[in-house]
Design a protein around this nucleic acid. Structure first.
Length: 281
DNA sequence: ATTAATGTTCAGAA
DNA sequence: TTTCTGAACATTAA
C-alpha cells in the first residue's frame, strides 16, 4: 500500500536523478503477466530514449517523472510497486528497468510483486486530463481544514471511507486512514455530515501530523516486504502504528480500550472504541 | 491442498 | 448524483 508517505519517500529517493539521461527502458522476460503500460512499451521506449529527467514529483500516491520533452511518466505503485536504485529483492518481479546515463551505469527498477502497478506516458494535456482536479483532490498535506470541510460536510458516507477517496483528497489509503482517525479520536463509521467543528479541526491536524511523522520515518514497511527507500532500506513508521493491524491489543493512548477490527468498503479498519466514540463532540 | 485475506483503482451497478 | 460492489493480481497465513 504505498500511500502518501511511502510515495513521498520514493520521490525523494529519485530526486537525485534530476539531470540524468535515460538511455533506454526494458521489460525483462518473466513468467508473470506484464504490467500495464499506457500507451505501450514501444511508445515508452521511443519517448524516453536520450531524454533527460527535469523533475521528479508526486501526485497523491503516484510518482511523476518529467522529461525534457515535456512528457510525463506517471508511475502508480498501487499495492506492491517499488522504485529502486539498488538491487531488487528478486529478478522474478522486476517489471521495468530504466537504464540511466553517466559512467555509474545506474538503473531505475520498477519492482512489483503483485503486478497491479501501472505506468503512463503522457503529454501535458493528457496529464491534465487524467490527473487533473476532477480526478484527484488536493494533496493531503496541502489541503486546508476549510477545503476538507467543504468537500465532505454534506456527505453521508463514513468518514474513514471518505478519507480514502482520492477525489476528495489525494494520498490517504487504508493504513493511514485508521491511524489518522485514532489520532483525531473520531470513530471511523461516523458519517461526514455528523462531524462537529472540533472534530474537523482535530481531523485536519491529525492528517498533517500523522503524514509528516510517517514521512520523517520514511514510511511504513510491512511484513509482506513491500516499500521502503529507493536504496532498499525499510521504513520505520510501522513501529509507530497505534491501531493498524493491532486488533486485540490494548490501546496505547487510553491504556484501557482494546483495538477492534471492522470491515468498511471491503477493507479492514482498526480503532479503539473507547478513544473514538461515535457521538458528536 | 484449498481458501481467505491482503488493498488501490476503476468500471459498472444500485 | 452519490454510494457501493467486484475484479485485476501474487503471496502468505490459516
Amino acid at each position: 500500500m504505498p500511500e502518501l508517505p511511502e510515495v513521498e519517500t520514493m520521490r525523494r529517493g529519485l530526486a537525485k536523478l534530476v539531470g540524468s539521461r535515460i538511455m533506454g527502458v526494458s521489460r525483462p522476460r518473466s513468467p508473470l503477466r506484464p504490467i500495464t503500460i499506457h500507451p505501450g512499451l514501444p511508445a515508452l521506449r521511443r519517448a524516453v530514449r536520450a531524454r533527460r529527467i527535469v523533475q521528479v514529483g508526486r501526485l497523491g500516491k503516484r510518482v511523476v517523472v518529467w522529461l525534457n520533452s515535456s512528457r510525463a511518466i506517471v508511475i502508480e505503485p498501487r499495492m506492491t510497486g517499488r522504485l529502486l536504485l539498488s538491487t531488487p529483492p528478486d529478478r522474478k518481479h522486476v517489471r521495468l528497468v530504466f537504464r540511466l546515463g553517466g559512467r555509474r551505469k545506474q538503473q531505475l527498477t520498477f519492482w512489483d510483486s503483485r503486478g497491479l502497478g501501472v505506468v503512463h506516458l503522457l503529454r501535458p494535456e493528457e496529464f491534465a486530463e487524467n490527473f487533473g482536479p476532477h480526478r484527484l483532490g488536493p494533496d493531503a498535506l496541502l489541503i486546508t481544514q476549510k477545503m476538507l470541510q467543504i468537500r465532505l460536510r454534506a456527505s453521508r458516507r463514513a468518514i474513514k471511507v471518505a478519507l480514502m477517496d482520492q477525489r476528495v483528497l489525494a494520498g490517504i489509503g487504508n493504513l493511514y486512514a485508521s491511524e489518522i482517525l485514532h489520532r483525531a479520536k473520531i470513530h471511523p463509521e461516523l458519517p461526514c455530515n455528523r462531524l462537529g467543528p472540533s472534530q474537523w479541526r482535530r481531523l485536519h491536524q491529525a492528517i498533517r501530523r500523522v503524514l509528516r511523522e510517517a514521512i520523517r520515518a520514511q514510511g511504513s514497511t510491512l511484513s509482506d516486504g513491500a516499500y521502503g527507500t529507493s536504496d532498499g532500506r525499510a521504513g520505520r513508521f510501522q513501529t509507530a502504528h497505534r491501531v493498524y493491524q493491532r486488533h486485540g491489543h490494548r490501546c496505547p493512548s487510553c491504556q484501557r480500550g482494546t483495538i477492534r477490527r471492522i470491515v468498511q468498503a471491503q477493507r479492514s479498519t482498526f480503532f479503539c472504541p473507547r478513544c473514538q466514540p461515535l457521538g458528536n463532540r
